[in-house]
Design a protein around this nucleic acid. Structure first.
Lengths: 225, 225
DNA sequence: CTATGTGAAACGGTTCACAGCA
DNA sequence: TGCTGTGAACCGTTTCACATAG
């Protein structure tokens, strides 16, 4: 019923709607939201069909109500604790980001094998030794973890995460993780993504003298790609 | 003809094949590669149809030849320079990663507005002031850039990147970037991905007492999901 | 008129199932 | 027998096009 793609876009819409205040308006049209999100207006309307809310053809969607209905669908708007394993540069980037931009997600516990990083507070987040992983996770009821270790220990760590009750993992490791069917894993393989970008950068022709392009197309114009 | 998904998986396959040495064998079956990559054997065979190479039903695919043919399809195996804009934690994570695991991609120039970070060498990569962006990029013929700045300056920076001849951008910013049609942008929105994981973590049921699951299924067994 | 809601068509990607071959 | 290569079926997603409403 709710596919991965739809969920992803609804989360994007919600973030954009929360920042919406063009001319102090509290209403928004599908083509405006579409332009901000970089999708088609039809896509926006189709996605909004999934939430229990109907806009008015005259005035568009009420921003506040739409945010509420999306949140109702996504569920659990109350703050949810996230664990982080691996306090390298990437791990610290994650801590810094979610500390700076407080959302309903917050990284509340970090873990590393490196004794030097342990038992300190980094970016407002306490760093524990990896040995205490299960203990802390169970105590805090953590269900979601970000995995930012090197590739080698990844499978072993994820097994311990699952054992401790984690059912969602954001995996920055190049390892393909084996988990039981009730656990959701999202892979983010940055090296693969960069190679992909390099490939498509090559395949795109590079016109030497080029025209100006619409850098910031007016948000109010219906985009018809 | 070659879709984004296929390119992505071919890059994954190539990496796995380069690390393949089970029992010193130089051949591999589709189900073995599939198991490593976490896809179906049919998917592997279908993807390999895209490259100009045929395996043998008796012995499977010759690993070295398959790597060569995938590389021929992906093109430009010679080292390609990458620029990085934004030397925060995330930027340093990228520099550290591509320094440690040398591939055919290397981050050769980094940029930041912060004077304190500039004109030093971090992770084997020289850091320039943002003002010299165009100069350095044109001089080195850089076509690919990773964007790891805050959201606010992202659109302005990408405009300058495009002006300097960049045709591929890996965008870690939550901003939707407007670029001319000949420029490829890949978005990696970590906050959205974490929220998505949190959502699916909630929707998965969490069976309390659970059975052991196949953590490392034998690579030689045909997986039929 | 313009914008929404939506059935239906179009599209793209994955899987099936089987022919062919060592 | 067990694998590869592949046409065809299948399935999920996106887009179209139009009925409907202010």
């Amino acid at each position: 019923m709710l596919s991965h793609r739809v969920i992803e876009r609804l989360i994007v819409y919600r973030r954009l709607l929360r920042g919406w205040s063009v001319g102090g308006r509290d209403k928004i049209y599908s083509h405006e939201l579409a332009s901000l999100a970089g999708v088609t207006p039809a896509q926006v309307r189709r996605d909004i069909m999934a939430v229990e809310y109907a806009g008015s053809p005259a005035k568009g969607y009420d921003v506040a109500q739409l945010v509420d209905q999306i949140s109702a669908l996504l569920g659990a708007s109350s703050s949810q604790p996230i664990a982080l394993v691996g306090i390298g540069h990437l791990g610290q980037a994650l801590m810094a980001y979610f500390n700076r931009n407080p959302s309903n997600l917050s990284i509340t516990a970090a873990f590393d094998v490196d004794e030097a990083k342990v038992d300190r507070v980094l970016h407002g987040c306490h760093c524990h030794p990896l040995a205490r992983l299960e203990e802390v996770l169970v105590e805090r009821g953590v269900k979601v973890a970000a995995l930012a270790t090197p590739a080698e220990p990844a499978q072993e760590v994820v097994a311990r995460l699952v054992e401790a009750g984690v059912t969602g993992v954001l995996n920055f490791t190049p390892q393909h993780l084996h988990v039981p069917p009730n656990v959701y894993v999202e892979d983010v393989d940055i090296a693969i993504l960069l190679e992909k970008v390099a490939f498509f950068a090559r395949s795109e022709t590079d016109p030497h003298g080029e025209l100006p392009w619409p850098q910031i197309p007016p948000v109010s114009s219906p985009s018809r790609p």
